[in-house]
Amino acid sequence: MSELKQELKEKIIEQLNLEDVSVDEIANDDPLFGEGLGLDSIDALELIVMLDKDYGIRLADPKEGRKIFESIDTMAAYIAANRTN
């Protein structure tokens, strides 16, 4: 699981162009939206695409993303339980 969390941090920084953020600066329980990393609605869509492209997970309802994308912890747990590739 810790490898997956590390992978997610690297993917998020690269795919969301978080230029001034390093992997070490993202705690596993940091909120990804709002006061945490400050991601926005377009970032949320990018994360949904990332789940599909990299882990074979298609969200039927984008609103599901709210809980899944709360933090690296919640993302990793959801991916580990639902990934198809």
Partner: peptide, 11 residues
Amino acid sequence: SGAFASPAVFV
């Protein structure tokens, strides 16, 4: 190999 539109590019 699989088409994935990037929302961040599309906007």
